[in-house]
Nucleic acid binder design. Structure first.
Length: 625
DNA sequence: ACGGTTGGTACA
DNA sequence: TTGTACCAA
């Protein structure tokens, strides 16, 4: 539960952007004849037509739901178009959606501090941009005519004179005597409408958005009017909104905590929460959660937009339902190998594109014992330092599994570990990589060792050659995603980046792009500074000149990951460098080890000795004290 | 014992 | 720190 911060008096302007049935849109862009048809994306299709994971709005009108199987969907909507998620290595492969999500993030990030909340959701802190707009071009003077802005939904706004709805919204946006915070919200709405149009223009994807004074209200609002619409939450509407809102609608309260509030305290709506003193809530749910609940009831939430464009971990997993549960050690090994191959590939993409290395490998499994009475225990997750290369990861993952299985089965039953099954079943396996550290100055052309698989390695090297090294493509891509680069800062991409071109593009452009209101005041997100430092370039991007010059396509982005700005590297590096353990460096692809070591300060060796310095120590049975 | 897969956070 | 649990979509 996020820590509440009531002291921050929420006069920020926050937006939550939510892609509309995102996977469907990705498939419809790829297959344009699907546009306008009832469509769903299904994962696998062997069993009952596969599981729906995204449903178009046309299909929803037939009652098609995300929880359905493909066959059920066909029953209620016979003409529904079912598109399958790509499969690689016997499992669902979501890379195309990751890539598409990154396209969107890279556009939204131009507006201000940006947090990638999921593959298809983003938070934006538009406070600075809104304040700048209000100061320099307030809506009350430069009346917005933009249709997308006027289609906004303003919670609590009534249309008493029965005039045209858009005219009604325009009047609200332009009120001279409005509260300062309402004026900022109006600016936020204009900014969000414009950036949503830009997303549509550059990606062909629609999205919906909520604009409010904090994250939780923005999130709440973003799904109130879908698809392709935006909703504003003025301060004056908050109480009326929350009073009758079912408690489960609030983010974080859709699960057990929400149920507990309902059953234990009789709280049905957020408004019902208001009766309870903070102390009471703390007694029931702990200090942090109690305070958080007390604030949420009042529409207060101080969580900041994180300023993070990239995921904090990578995972690859698969479930083995019912009869497909794994019974043999060999089958577990097989699937771990597949999962590790995918993970390894994604880690190398991250290294390539973002210069990030990963430090920890974790194995999760779900299991049950058919005969055993001791059904409570979960299969324990296990982790160890991550060694790059598919073969090493496979070896380590299998060892982690073995360690977990021993613990899961208990000491008496260890003889059952042989390849014969002795009652245990594995219904889920996943490997994940976490503790990602950004590293500077890895030359982008280094041929990285991919691991053992020749085919994979070959494919990798070829993409590296064309995409990462010399090609025009790559430098163009850098230009889209990077801001100005700090000179002298381990300048890797300055080599092949056409700086001159930027300057040449400084010509005068359309007069009133709102993106010019982005300001550099927030030190916590360096990318904002960069964009502010390059106003002309930002304007270029926002006015579609870049688009005209070279449209963004799916193939422009390698593997579902955005590229970090250089100064983000610098900032992260400056305080994370000391944390890199030399034993981790040992496990990097040999070619970059030296590179990384050069950047390490006079070693501060610390915490490798706990388990011993050998990887093998991580797989021994955990000893009791 | 099946919406799957992928991700995030809080806490002990 | 590691491992668990919960949450979301």
């Amino acid at each position: 539960m996020p820590v509440a911060r009531p002291e921050s008096s929420d006069s920020r302007i926050i937006a939550h952007v939510d892609m509309d049935c995102f996977y469907v849109q990705v498939e419809q862009r790829k297959l344009p004849y699907l546009r306008g048809l009832p469509t769903a994306v299904v994962q696998y299709n062997e069993w009952k037509g596969g599981a729906l994971i995204a449903v178009s709005y046309e299909a929803r009108t037939y009652g098609v739901k995300r929880s359905m199987r493909g066959h059920e969907a066909k029953e209620v909507c016979p003409e529904i178009q079912l598109v399958q998620v790509p499969v690689a290595r016997g499992k669902a492969d979501l890379n195309t959606y990751r890539t598409a999500g990154s396209e969107v993030v890279s556009i939204l990030a131009r507006t201000g501090r940006c947090e990638r909340a999921s593959i298809d959701e983003v938070y934006l802190d538009l406070t600075d941009a809104a304040e700048k707009m209000l100061a320099e071009a307030p809506p009350e003077i430069f009346e917005p005519v933009d249709d997308e802005t006027l289609k906004s939904h303003i919670l609590g706004l009534t249309n008493e004179r029965g005039i045209d709805d858009k005219e009604n919204v325009r009047e609200w946006l332009c009120r001279k005597n409005a509260d300062h915070r309402d004026k900022l919200l109006a600016c936020g709405a204009i900014i969000v409408a414009e950036v949503r149009m830009q997303v549509l223009k550059e990606t062909k994807f629609t999205c919906s958005a909520g604009i409010a004074h904090n994250k939780i209200l923005a999130k709440l609002a973003s799904c109130m009017n879908k698809p392709a619409q935006q909703t504003v939450v003025p301060l004056s509407s908050v109480k009326g909104l929350l009073d009758s809102l079912p408690i489960k609608k609030m983010k974080q309260l859709g699960g057990k905590l929400g149920s507990s509030l309902q059953s234990d305290l009789g709280v049905k709506t957020v408004g019902d929460l208001l009766q309870f003193p903070e102390e009471k809530l703390q007694e029931h749910y702990g200090v942090n959660t109690g305070t958080w609940l007390w604030n949420i009831a009042r529409g207060v939430s101080g969580e900041e937009v994180q300023g993070r464009l990239l995921p904090k971990s990578h995972g690859s997993g698969k479930s083995f339902a019912g009869p497909r549960a794994l019974k043999t050690f060999a089958s577990v090994e097989h699937w771990l190998n597949e999962l590790c191959e995918e993970l390894n590939e994604r880690l190398h993409s991250d290294l390539d594109q973002n210069k990030r290395i990963v430090r920890t490998l974790t194995l999760h499994a779900t299991a049950y014992k058919s005969c055993d009475s001791d059904a409570q225990k979960n299969f324990p997750s296990k982790s160890c330092p991550l060694r790059y290369g598919a073969a090493k990861m496979q070896e380590d993952a299998l060892n982690l599994f073995q360690a977990g299985l021993r613990e899961y089965l208990g000491t008496y039953n260890t003889r059952a570990l042989g390849s014969q099954n002795n009652g245990w079943r594995i219904t889920g396996l996943s490997v994940s990589a976490s503790k990602i550290v950004e590293i500077p100055s890895i030359p982008c052309c280094l041929p990285l060792d991919r691991g053992q698989d020749d085919i994979t390695q070959e494919a990798y090297l070829s993409t590296l050659g064309t995409e990462s090294c010399s090609g025009i493509n790559k430098s163009e891509e850098h230009e889209v995603f990077h801001g100005e680069e700090t000179t002298g800062q381990c300048g890797m991409s300055s080599l092949n980046r056409p700086e001159q071109k930027r300057k040449a593009m400084k010509e005068k452009l359309g007069t009133r792009s709102i993106l010019k209101f982005f300001k550099k005041t927030d030190p916590s997100c360096s990318s904002i500074k960069e964009h502010a430092d390059n106003l002309q370039n930002v304007e270029l991007a926002s006015t579609g000149v870049r688009l005209t010059e070279r449209p963004i396509e799916v193939s422009d982005i390698n593997n579902g990951q955005c590229t970090l700005t250089q100064s983000e590297h610098k900032e992260a590096w400056s305080y994370k460098i000391d944390e890199i353990d030399s034993s981790v460096v040992d496990e990097l692809p040999p070619e970059i080890q030296e590179e990384v070591r050069l950047c390490l300060r006079p070693q501060k060796r610390s915490n490798i000795a706990k388990r011993g310095s050998s990887i093998a120590d991580y797989f021994l049975p955990t000893r009791k004290t």
